[in-house]
Design a protein around this nucleic acid. Structure first.
Lengths: 131, 131
DNA sequence: CGATAATATATCGCCATACGATACATCGAT
DNA sequence: ATCGATGTATCGTATGGCGATATATTATCG
């Protein structure tokens, strides 16, 4: 019914949004609002995380000690900055590998329905090793 | 907590199990129990769909007119065979394309954390076009 | 022949989580 | 003063995968 051609269904995002956030925080520290923006821009608006998804997720990750937060209002604005913990980095590696395997499984089952993922081939930069 | 290294978390499956089933039914008609088996074997046990997931999903797809069922007990066993409808084929194309795009988005965001998906490169068979 | 496992479908309650709505506070610009 | 953007937070709802459970039939093995 909903004719939203340019946005993914939430069930597709489920179970990988945490991975996205972890990956973004691995690059550099961010605060929630920025992460939202980053995801939106990096995916050309195809993946959007509302605040109602973002903040609970961040709290969950912090509760699991995968990320750590600190308030900073030195720039006028009060912002809660998050950074990856060691456990977070480890989890990121796990989840990235898992996602990768899952994508392979899908490829296996979706033979004939897959177009080659051009970007995935070109933009791989193995500057970090998974596990 | 759960140390299931060789099985994916259910949230990862969420939103793509229907796609799997659709893709399998596109190849040939199947009944539930068989689909379960197919998915399990095609993914080397890494993706397993319990009956409590399978049948409700099948019912949902049928309710949406994406698949059609017919009982057959000519082989001794009573089996409910499912086949794709025209709407189902269309949906499959949509969802496959969507998955593909999503995988690209992930690749975008996960730069440096992706290993090359070897199988995805080799086993692509573009015998059908998406959209 | 009786017991057990595999086949086959179905449903129920639980629970995690993505979402929209809403709230609230601050800052810059008009 | 007002308004929009920034920034964080929480609540209720809906969805759907999961384990447990039920039920029936068939095949197998002792």
């Amino acid at each position: 019914m909903a004719k939203k051609t340019d946005k993914f269904e939430s069930d597709l995002l489920r179970g990988s949004l945490d991975l996205m956030v972890l990956a973004i925080l691995d690059q550099e520290d961010q605060y929630g609002y920025l992460i939202q923006k980053q995801i939106r821009e990096a995916t050309e608006g195809k993946v959007t995380m509302g605040a109602g998804t973002m903040y609970p997720l961040l709290h969950r990750l912090e509760g699991d000690k995968l990320i750590r937060s600190r308030w900073d209002d030195s720039s006028g604005r009060k912002r809660k900055w998050y950074s990856l913990t060691a456990a977070g980095k480890k989890r990121l590696a796990q989840r990235a590998s898992q996602w990768n395997q899952y994508a392979e499984c899908m490829a296996q089952l979706m033979q004939g329905w897959f177009e080659p993922v051009a970007s995935a081939k070109k933009q791989i930069r193995l500057n970090k090793k998974t596990t």
